[in-house]
């Protein structure tokens, strides 16, 4: 129950941050990616702002045995850089540029602009399901 509550609070703060920072606006995200247009640097500030607390969190993580509400850390240990990582990132970046949305903002926008966001989220889940079936 406490873990469910923590995840809900974390998701809500995350979604609030996306909306407050302008990252739930597809045109603003696309504006960051539009180097040859009316470039909008906002996304760089968001990324910088997000990395600061997270970098501190990693420093703390190394000094504690377990998370405060769970029995162990469950972190990805994969190290090799392979074709899947690269091709996946190329495809994701293309979809990000075309729509101006990545998974977080797409889901957050369900509460702000439900119809186009729902089209994106359904397509995203379909893409994930296609990956599941083909891999």
């Amino acid at each position: 129950m406490i873990r469910f509550a923590i995840a809900l609070v974390a998701g809500s703060i995350f979604g609030a941050g996306l909306a407050f920072s302008g990252m739930s606006d597809p045109a603003r995200v696309q504006g960051f990616l539009d180097l040859f247009g009316n470039w909008d640097p906002t996304l760089a500030f968001v990324m910088g702002g997000a990395i600061i607390p997270m970098a501190i969190a990693w420093l703390i993580q190394r000094r504690v045995e377990k998370p405060f509400a769970d029995t162990q850390f469950s972190l990805p240990g994969t190290v090799n850089i392979d074709g899947k990582l690269a091709i996946g990132a190329v495809l994701f970046g293309a979809g990000w540029g075309i729509s101006g949305l990545c998974p977080g903002p797409g889901l957050a926008d369900l509460a702000i602009n439900p119809l186009p966001a729902l089209a994106f989220v359904i397509a995203m889940q379909t893409g994930m399901a296609v990956h599941r079936v083909t891999n």
Binding site: R3, G11, S21, I52, P67
Partner: peptide
């Protein structure tokens, strides 16, 4: 929107830190 971006970014980072340090 550098100020809103930075504040919103900090919120995102705090949320991610909560997931890491709370739930691992």
């Amino acid at each position: 929107m550098p100020v809103e971006g930075l504040i919103g970014g900090l919120m995102i980072g705090i949320a991610a830190a909560l997931m890491l340090l709370g739930l691992g």
